[in-house]
């Protein structure tokens, strides 16, 4: 059974791109969220195997969303998606409970590598 992934990003563009990369590798998209709040809500209802989380989003940023999700499920597997120049935020996200990160622009191979790493660990 393919792993089910929840994609959180405020840009349809990014969600589409991540979804394409994941789907072409056989993952199933459990759902999408376009804000931190929505990410937390969807996490509760969809119970995905993995979450990809953008950092900068309206209505609760990615880091607060990570904290909220980890509070619900300590074993949540969250992969941060950050742009260049956000190293400090990435560190904060990992401290908050995110398992790994990838940097935009996405290289499909890197994204898949990170997804496998997080799912495996």
């Amino acid at each position: 059974m393919a792993h089910r992934i929840l994609i959180c990003d405020d840009a349809i563009f990014m969600r589409t791109m991540i979804a394409d990369i994941l789907v072409s590798a056989g993952y199933e998209i459990a759902g999408e969220a376009e804000s931190g709040l929505q990410a937390v809500e969807r996490y509760k209802t969809l119970k995905p195997d993995l979450v990809t989380m953008d950092i900068v989003m309206p209505d609760m940023g990615g880091i607060d969303a990570v904290k909220a999700i980890v509070a619900i499920d300590a074993n949540a597997k969250i992969l941060m998606c950050s742009a260049m120049g956000q190293q400090s935020l990435v560190v904060e996200a990992i401290q908050a409970g995110a398992k790994d990160f990838v940097v935009k622009p996405f290289q499909p191979a890197r994204v898949l590598e990170a997804v496998q790493r997080v799912l495996g660990g």
């Binding site: 405020d10 563009f13 990014m14 900068v56 989003m57 309206p58 742009a83 935009k104 622009p105 996405f106």
Partner: peptide, 18 residues
């Protein structure tokens, strides 16, 4: 804040499309 988020998103998209 809103402008920052907009620019940030545009930057990410533009970089993805090279």
């Amino acid at each position: 804040e809103e402008i920052f988020r907009a620019l940030h998103t545009i930057k990410g998209m533009a970089a993805s499309l090279e």
